[in-house]
């Protein structure tokens, strides 16, 4: 465990959230969130459904707008300035629960799209980058197929490759394995573990506690829109402090 913490550089802050609050209409969905993530850190966020975990990471690239508090990503303040939002989105990759691949484009085109149109990378170079990352997620042979022809696990690996093609500083994972069959979860988690070993800064919303133990530097437990507890994985799982954490852990680890 000591080895994985080596890569964290404490002075380089990638994400900072300062007293962030968000409402959906009357409903207070994020309550006073304070979070700082350093370069190379792997954070796992867990908690019961409706606790605001997804909303939290979706605020980091402005898929959701927060109403109070400050968020800055990669040193850029996240406000209404479209330029800032675009700049942040270029540096932040996101993987969704339902993959959200573009079904009318081939796997290769899915991966080349953002580099070509957002980063203005020449097509030949973008194709090289795409093939590089498709090889890394171990599906280069599927490059010319369409998403509909792939299994769920393969689609999610493509989604990871697609996000990596922008060479982001930070990767957000929004329940990446929740829509997968059990036998496909492993292939996606393996890809994520490899990514973590390469030193990628990651924030994962997931219920895969094995993954959290193996990879995370920090596990954050959320409930009712608040951060209830955060700790190193060993301490978090073996010695939870709050009653709500204990209850949650007993429910998901109980069987």
């Amino acid at each position: 465990m000591a080895q994985k913490n080596n890569k964290v550089s404490p002075d380089e802050v990638v994400v900072s959230m300062d007293h962030v609050n968000k409402w959906f209409g009357q409903f207070h969905v994020l309550r006073d969130i304070n979070l700082q993530v350093n370069r190379g850190e792997r954070i796992v966020i867990c908690g019961p459904s409706g606790s605001g975990k997804s909303t939290l990471i979706r605020c980091l690239n402005r898929l959701e707008e927060h109403q109070q508090g400050d968020i800055s990503v990669h040193g850029i303040e996240l406000n209404n300035d479209v330029k800032n939002i675009d700049e942040i989105r270029r540096e932040v990759g996101m993987v969704f629960q339902h993959f959200n691949l573009f079904p009318h484009l081939s796997i290769l085109e899915n991966c080349m799209l953002a580099p070509v149109w957002v980063r203005k990378t020449p097509r030949v170079e973008a194709e090289e980058i795409a093939m590089h990352f498709l090889t890394r997620v171990k599906i280069p042979e599927q490059a010319h197929k369409y998403p509909g022809q792939l299994s769920g696990g393969q689609q999610q690996r493509v989604a990871i490759a697609r996000a990596l093609c922008m060479q982001p500083q930070l990767m957000l994972f929004d329940e990446p394995t929740s829509a997968l069959d059990p036998e496909m979860i492993k292939e996606v988690l393996d890809t994520m573990v490899e990514l973590a070993e390469d030193g990628m800064t990651m924030i994962c919303v997931t219920h895969e506690m094995g993954f959290a133990r193996k990879v995370a530097n920090r596990v954050i437990f959320m409930d009712e829109g608040q951060i209830i507890e955060q700790n190193e994985p060993e301490a978090f799982f073996n010695n939870p402090q709050s009653d709500r954490t204990k209850l949650f852990l007993s429910q998901i680890l109980g069987h």
């Binding site: 690239n61 898929l63 675009d86 989105r89 959200n100």
Partner: peptide
């Protein structure tokens, strides 16, 4: 999710309409 994926990649509104949404 298609809109969100396009947004999260940093595509502009017109790019995501032209490349992602309208073709489908």
């Amino acid at each position: 999710g298609q809109y969100e994926a396009a947004d999260s990649m940093g595509l502009t509104y017109w790019q995501s309409m032209r490349l992602i949404i309208l073709p489908q």
